[in-house]
C-alpha cells in the first residue's frame, strides 16, 4: 500500500524536489511574480497536453498540434483584423473577439477530425497521418498569413492574454478549465472509459461493442480543439499571430505526457500526471533561465530529464 501511494505521487515528488533545488540555487525563483510567470508560460503546453494525453492513452500520437496551433492562431488574428471579405460581391464580414475565437476552435476541431478520419478510414498509422497534417497545417498558415505576423488585435483580446481575474491570470483560468474538463471526461464519462479500454486492448473493446472508430475520431478532434485553445492563448499573450508559432510544441506536449507517467503503448496514465509533467518542464525551463544556463545546455538538460523520468517510471512499474 505504501509503495503504491509512493508511486502515485512519484512525479509530484520530483516536481517538489526540483522546486526546492532551484530555490536553493537562486532566490529569484520563489517570488510571486516569477511563479505566476511560470504558470502563464506552461498554460499553453498544458492545454495541448490534455488533448495529447487522451490521444496517447489510446495508443496514438498527434504530431500536428504545433501546426494546428499556428493555423488557428492565424485564423483567429486574421478574422479579428480583416474579417472575411468577398470583394466581388462587395461583402465584408467582421468578427468580434468571441466570434473569432469560436471560429478558431472550430477550425482546430475540423483539422483534428481530419486526422482522425484519415487514421480510422484508411487505417494509416497516427504517426504518419499527423506528420502529414503537421506539414499541411503549417503550409496553410503560411498561405493565409503570407508569412507575415498579424498584429494589433485590440485591447479586449489582449486582456485575455495578460489580464487577471480574481487574482489569477486569465490564461491560467482557461487552462484550469481545460484540465478540469479533461479530467472529468477521462475519469467520469463512458467516453473516457472507452479511451482507456481502446488503448489497453482495442480488440477486446471492439468485441465489447464499443464503436472504436468513432471514439478515435473524436479523440483526435478533441486534440485539435485543445491545440486551438493553445493557439488562442498564444495569440492573446503576444497580441499577434506569428506564422511560425508552435514549432516543435508537439514534442513538449509528448514530453509532458510521458514524464507524467502515461504509457506510449496506451491504456495507462492520467491527465493529472500530464499536468505535473508539464509543470516539471516549465519549472526546469524557468530555473535554467534564472540560473543563466546557456540555451544550448538547456536543451541537453531537458532531454536528459525526459530520459530520466521514463527510466524511473519503467523501473517503478516492475
Amino acid at each position: 500500500m505504501k509503495k503504491e501511494t509512493l508511486k502515485k505521487f512519484q512525479s509530484l515528488l520530483a516536481l517538489l524536489i526540483l522546486c526546492v533545488l532551484i530555490s536553493i540555487l537562486t532566490d529569484k525563483f520563489l517570488s510571486a511574480s516569477n511563479l505566476w510567470n511560470v504558470l502563464r508560460q506552461i498554460s499553453v503546453n498544458v492545454c495541448i497536453s490534455v488533448g495529447m494525453t487522451l490521444v496517447v492513452l489510446m495508443a496514438g500520437i498527434d504530431l500536428s498540434v504545433g501546426s494546428i496551433l499556428a493555423f488557428t492562431s492565424a485564423v483567429c488574428a486574421g478574422l479579428l483584423t480583416q474579417g472575411i471579405a468577398f470583394e466581388s460581391m462587395d461583402l465584408y464580414i467582421g468578427f468580434t473577439w468571441v466570434g473569432a475565437i469560436v471560429v478558431a476552435l472550430i477550425a482546430g476541431l475540423l483539422l483534428g477530425l481530419f486526422n482522425g478520419f484519415v487514421i480510422t478510414k484508411f487505417d494509416i498509422p497516427p504517426f504518419v497521418a499527423t506528420l502529414a497534417m503537421l506539414t499541411m497545417a503549417r503550409g496553410a498558415t503560411m498561405l493565409y498569413t503570407g508569412g507575415i505576423p498579424i498584429a494589433n488585435l485590440g485591447e479586449k483580446f489582449e486582456r485575455l492574454g495578460s489580464g487577471w481575474l480574481l487574482g489569477i491570470p486569465i490564461p491560467v483560468w482557461i487552462t484550469l478549465t481545460v484540465v478540469g474538463a479533461g479530467i472529468f471526461l477521462s475519469r467520469k464519462t463512458n467516453f473516457g472509459k472507452y479511451v482507456y479500454a481502446i488503448g489497453g486492448n482495442e480488440k477486446a473493446a471492439f468485441l465489447s461493442g464499443i464503436n472504436t472508430k468513432f471514439v478515435k475520431l473524436m479523440v483526435y478532434g478533441i486534440s485539435g480543439i485543445t491545440a486551438a485553445i493553445g493557439g488562442v492563448l498564444v495569440t492573446a499573450r503576444l497580441n499577434s499571430a506569428q506564422p511560425n508559432a508552435g514549432t516543435s510544441y508537439e514534442l513538449d506536449a509528448i514530453a509532458a505526457v510521458v514524464i507524467g507517467g502515461t504509457s506510449l503503448s496506451g491504456g495507462v496514465g492520467t491527465i493529472t500526471g500530464t499536468v505535473i509533467g508539464a509543470a516539471i518542464i516549465g519549472v526546469l525551463n524557468n530555473g535554467l533561465v534564472l540560473l543563466n544556463v546557456s540555451p544550448f545546455w538547456q536543451q541537453v538538460i531537458k532531454g536528459l530529464v525526459i530520459l530520466l523520468a521514463v527510466i524511473i517510471d519503467k523501473k517503478s512499474k516492475k
Binding site: Y196, A197, L207, S208, V268
Partner: peptide
C-alpha cells in the same frame, strides 16, 4: 488476454464495458 479483457483496467470497468446504456456520465 487478446480479445476478452482490458488487463490494465479494474474488474468493474471490464464487467461494465459491454453495458452501453447511452448515458454520458458513468
Amino acid at each position: 488476454k487478446e480479445e476478452g479483457l482490458v488487463l490494465d483496467l479494474p474488474l468493474t470497468s471490464n464487467i461494465n464495458l459491454t453495458k452501453s446504456d447511452g448515458s454520458w456520465v458513468v
